[in-house]
Write a protein that binds this DNA or RNA. Structure first.
Length: 196
DNA sequence: TAGGCCATCTGGTCCT
DNA sequence: AGGACCAGATGGCCTA
């Protein structure tokens, strides 16, 4: 279950999802980020300039001053009796890894936000945002529902065709309606024999 | 106050 | 070696 959850980004990548500034832009509307709302400063805020992002993300002050989420083990482990230079270097490496991980999780959350935006549920300021797990489960059910509806439509069309000649509205691609191409497919290949 | 949800840090593992 | 992915730990916020 959790395994599946964490594979979302891979899935999104496969579908052509681009995380670079993708989706909701700099700050993600609706994300549960009380700190930002309080005015302490959102831990998600990264300056527009990517170079600035890098330097700022790796600044421990940025983490600790702009969010009261204390770095749980930030001061532990890396500081030891060993050489100061080495410990500083190790600390820097750790901060880089942390920043990458943070970005990765933000990308994952952006993907989840995009998913929320396309699945039908009551989007409203008064309605609480779907949790991650609820988003995934609802999305799965929605996909299954669409697949069932499509299947039923195919059966209906087949049945109607068997009854006799059908009056197909001009411009209606019956084959495409029955066998739609996935959104990401390069060319909407036209069937040689049109039903019309 | 307990429980749910979440963000972040961290160390391990795998891949390129 | 460096980066991506993963899961565990920790602590904050919110709601019933």
């Amino acid at each position: 279950m959790l395994q599946n959850l964490l594979k979302v980004r891979t899935l999104m990548d496969g579908l052509g999802y681009m995380c670079s500034g993708g989706g909701a832009g700099g700050e993600v509307a609706g994300r549960r980020t009380p700190l930002g709302a309080v005015g302490i400063g959102s831990p998600y805020y990264f300056p527009p300039s990517s170079s600035a992002v890098q330097s700022d993300e790796n600044n421990p002050d940025h983490q600790q001053n702009h969010g009261n989420r204390l770095a749980v083990g930030q001061a532990s482990g890396v500081s030891g009796p060993g050489g100061k230079a080495k410990s500083r270097q190790g600390k820097l490496v750790r901060l880089n890894i942390n920043a990458r991980e943070r970005r990765r999780m933000h990308d994952l959350n952006d993907a989840l936000d995009e998913l929320r935006s396309v699945i039908p549920y009551a989007h409203s300021p008064s309605v609480r945002k779907l949790s991650k797990i609820a988003t995934l489960l609802l999305a799965k059910n929605y996909i299954l529902m669409q697949a069932n509806a499509l299947d039923e439509l195919r059966r209906l069309i087949t049945y109607l065709q068997a009854q006799g000649p059908m009056a197909i509205p001009p411009g209606f691609d019956l084959h495409a309606a029955m066998f739609p191409k996935p959104p990401g497919s390069p060319h909407q290949s036209q069937p040689e024999s049109d039903q019309s």
